[in-house]
Write a protein that binds this DNA or RNA. Structure first.
Lengths: 351, 351
DNA sequence: TCCCGATTTGCATCCGAATGCAATACTGCC
DNA sequence: GGCAGTATTGCATTCGGATGCAAATCGGGA
């Protein structure tokens, strides 16, 4: 397109190939190794050398080839981040923050997005082919899949989930504790009948939350519990509320949704579909602390995940294990923050 | 950890290095080229050969090294996707969908997340070092940055933004048309005084939307327009509404926010802070069509971007240009969909 | 059975940078 | 000025797979 491209000895554009360290070496009148050393951190190179090489490199628009470097150093400087549609939808900032954290350590993110959390199989092969230095996953692995990456000596950190009885590293929000708080607050405030809106069957997070809530409810002597299941989405939340009421015959005192989006759906349906007042007629709580949870129209009572600290921890755990593969696995659980919103009648608010 | 790892001749784990095509060749009793060919698409290899190689590969757990392949083929099979915090926050599904589309074509996504849209400089170097085959960016480039990637012969597709007077490819939602619709509907329904909540100064999208709205308003003879500026976030939307009313002295007939999140903020503030009824006292419209826009409490009148079609188009445009670098640039603008929600008094709804 | 053309297969080389080792250039010190 | 000791530099090789070309093999027809 550019007319300069038609002239013969042009270095860039349609001219000849990208400049390599050999080109730079030749122009600077030094060896290729010298060029390589100038572009490394702890390598020895005299000031004079550095200047000559840099001048030549600038003139040629040279940039070290990370691919070639990866081949020889056996380090791709890339980590795989696996998310499923759901993960991402409700926590967009997780991904951005993770990427930024890795970036700070000179590590790039190769992204793998799954339609469903159980589609992991298809991407494992890819990650291995690209020789990622580590894997951070917000999707579950089967034991075989875990073994595959283990055999390849690739460290893995699980985000908000973990593998039963397996020695793996993970970072998660303490969901059991969170549900305990929520249930405790609700029961103490006098709620006796409960509805639970659980997540999709292939979501470990959803299952964990539901089980924790059920567990705590039973500990506190609550027996009137109705459960329906959704897919973590808003629409499903509305639908679930309807099904819940139908199943029970009447609305329960409180609804515990497995995540905020469904909780918000429940609120809307309770108000619009059943003319109920939240929280006067019914209390509704969620989990996550997503943005819309704090919108004035909902002011959701929920447990907010400490995203910042979690991503920070996940990134550094993975990087540590890349740099020192001998490190033993570690599980870190962070407490969430109970947000006492206006969507539930709690002791402290009306007692 | 595994006791098998302690035995000597173990191939994987702590044993020797990952299997290479040479290892497979040796075990199968063939040449390395043969192995290479078996793992390629259009290569010639007899059935017998294929079987022997595959058997050996399986036994050794061999996987072609995408890094090495990239070095020799000059194709990394990776594209860079650049997002800024803002982009991602309000359109998480864009990223997931893009990744899936690229995946379908065997292309991996190297993710770059910017704190602000104007931080592009820091990541260009990285993308070039990793020899990405193409760049899809939802952040703006300066002309110099564009020239840099152009010189490297890397095709670029801009997502929802474009570079003035530059020959670049882009996919966008027709925002001018969208604002025209919104303004038209509002004016026709009798709104006479307007507030505009614009985006941050470094957002091209925000600027475009604001200018389009202003332009159309002036065309329709509206002169009572007050403008305040936010950062695309919900909180800022609330704040903007307050500032808008203060600046004007009283609430306008309608507020046009540069995106949905701010529009929702405005609604909440109008209701809570000023006791206004939406849409009876004031109409509020947004842009984007994010999930919460359709929550019952807001039922926002907005223009929904056709995310699916846009990501589809963006991915295929980029891939086409990777495969055929001679292709000339192309700009594709998709019409959004006007959502006539309950947050605005429109003709069709009350006339 | 023999020969020609079409497939398969192997050989050798290349992609671009990193690095151990040896050679060389400096540095300071006596 | 000479020498030991250190800091630079270059040489040669390596990482793992792709590919043009030549050699080998196969198939089938006469």
């Amino acid at each position: 397109m550019n007319k300069a491209a038609k002239t013969d000895k042009n270095k860039d554009s349609t001219g000849r190939r990208r400049a390599t360290s050999y080109d730079v070496a030749e122009l600077a009148g030094v060896s290729q190794s010298a060029v390589s050393r100038v572009f490394q951190d702890g390598a020895s190179a005299s000031k004079a050398m550095r200047n000559r090489v840099m001048a030549a490199a600038d003139k040629l628009g040279y940039r070290p080839n990370a691919i070639a470097r990866g081949l020889i150093t056996q380090r791709s400087n890339m980590v795989a981040v696996v998310i499923s549609k759901i993960t991402n939808l409700y926590y967009p900032e997780v991904l951005v923050q993770l990427t930024q954290r890795f970036s700070e350590h000179g590590v790039r993110v190769l992204l793998f997005a799954l339609e469903h959390e159980s589609d992991t199989g298809t991407v494992i092969e890819q990650m291995l082919q690209f020789r990622v230095d580590g894997i951070l996953t917000a999707a579950i692995f089967t034991p075989e899949q875990l073994e595959t990456v283990d055999n390849a000596d690739i460290p893995v950190v699980f985000y908000n989930r973990t593998l039963q009885d397996q020695l793996v590293s993970s970072v998660r929000c303490d969901q059991e504790e969170g549900e305990r708080w929520l249930v405790g607050e609700l029961v103490n405030a006098g709620h006796k009948t409960f509805g639970i809106v659980e997540g999709p069957p292939d979501s470990v997070v959803g299952i964990e939350r539901k089980m924790s809530a059920l567990n705590e409810l039973s500990k506190m002597g609550i027996t009137d519990i109705t459960t329906v299941s959704g897919d973590f989405g808003y629409e499903t939340g509305r639908d679930c509320f309807t099904r819940l009421v139908e199943k029970r015959g009447s609305p329960p005192d409180a609804v515990i949704a497995a995540n905020d989006a469904m909780a918000i759906g429940c609120i809307d349906e309770a108000r619009e579909g059943f003319g109920l007042s939240v929280p006067d007629d019914i209390s509704i709580v969620g989990f996550d602390g997503i943005g819309p949870a704090s919108y004035a129209a909902y002011d959701l009572t929920t447990v907010r995940q400490p995203v910042q600290r979690m991503t920070q921890a996940a990134a550094s755990m993975l990087i540590e294990r890349i740099e020192n593969p001998e490190l033993s696995p570690e599980k870190r659980a962070f407490s969430g923050k109970l947000i006492r919103g206006g969507s539930a009648r709690l002791r402290s608010k009306n007692g």
